Computed example of a mutant assay.
Amino acid sequence: MISVLLPVRNAAAGLPAALDSLLGQTLGDFEIVAINDGSDDGGATQAVLEAYARRDARLRVLHRPHGGIVAALTAGLAAARGDAIARMDADDVCHPRRLERQAAFLDAHPDIGLVSCLAAFGGDPEAARGYKAHLDWANGQATPEAIRLGIFRESPLPHPTVMFRAELPGRFGGYRQGPFPEDYELWLRWLEAGVAMAKLPEALLVWNDPPGRLSRTDPRYDAEAFHRIKAGYLARHLARINPHHPEVLVVGAGRPTRRRAEQLLAHGVVIKAWLDIDPRKIGRVLGGRPVIALEAVPPPSACFVVPYVASRGATDILSRFLSQRGFVLGRSFLPAA
């Protein structure tokens, strides 16, 4: 059986569409564990949940005082009875065969612990260009290798697209509370533990973008939070794959890039120099390290390079440049933005 975890707070407007899409699934053997996280909208969300629960016994509702997304998900995991856990948000909509396709994939691939899917963007592509660009990038990370290598740039797995084996939280820990995105930290931790992750190459969820989405309003989901939480995981990964450990060269000498990259220092990484294309920076010493022209990067036999430039599209350009110089993704360079 599949357990769908659906945390809900003040979501009466979008909740009926989300529930209809779940209750219309072609897979019959599943439950929805809806966690009402202290909704205070005059009983509107509670009324929707209770009306649907009366109609279909597959919906189980947990009413809790408001404790936040991590507390709600933890309560849902404790109550779930399924062999696999699917995530869903109250403002998104599933394809009718989503659960069937993902459950069948896990059944057929016992080596895979988590499977995601592509997602269609349900917001305004002009007003939310950043979110749309992120989803386009995430949809492109569609193989276990791409997920593993892309995880240090940003999250390649939108949270409501995933289904994972119910045993994983017990083995490697579940959602953790802290000043960071709870899903991204979970993927980093599970990948570090060796959990293989895959993605179905079809859009089985519409990822909507309402103004109140937590990733828009909560500081745990801003760019700096992502960089803080991934620093330790990235440093440990570099220790495993970098033949020149602990030394790296970082692409990007701007102040925001340096500030983010320098979080690696607390985890034992040594930044030998900055690589940059700005002639005003080249030859200077910034943060105690020289700035070297990107064109003068030593060969891969002499260094490991970590591109940290965050501007959209820059990492792909840098990856092509480094590949032309003989660098190999995951072996002699690894993007971190």
Rank of each mutant, 00 (worst) to 15 (best):
E185M: 04
P110Y: 09
C303H: 08
A128C: 03
A90Q: 13
H134M: 12
L249W: 04
T26L: 08
G326K: 11
D83H: 07
S323F: 03
G122N: 10
F304L: 08
A12L: 12
L99M: 14
K272S: 09
A104R: 06
G24L: 09
L149Q: 05
D316W: 14
G42P: 04
T257H: 07
R255V: 15
A266P: 09
M1R: 01
P211L: 09
R171L: 11
T74A: 13
D218T: 05
A75D: 13
A127V: 12
G38F: 00
R216A: 00
L265V: 08
F152E: 10
L118Y: 04
A71S: 15
H66P: 09
G82L: 05
S21W: 10
S332K: 04
L204D: 02
N208G: 09
K132L: 14
R320A: 14
L77I: 11
F121H: 07
I32P: 01
R87E: 14
E224L: 15
T143S: 12
P16Y: 06
G68R: 07
A17T: 02
H95S: 15
L27H: 11
P181G: 12
P290F: 10
C117G: 08
D89Y: 06
A302V: 07
A72Q: 12
L318A: 05
G113V: 03
A44V: 00
L200M: 02
A225K: 02
V206D: 07
H109I: 10
G252M: 12
R101P: 05
V306D: 00
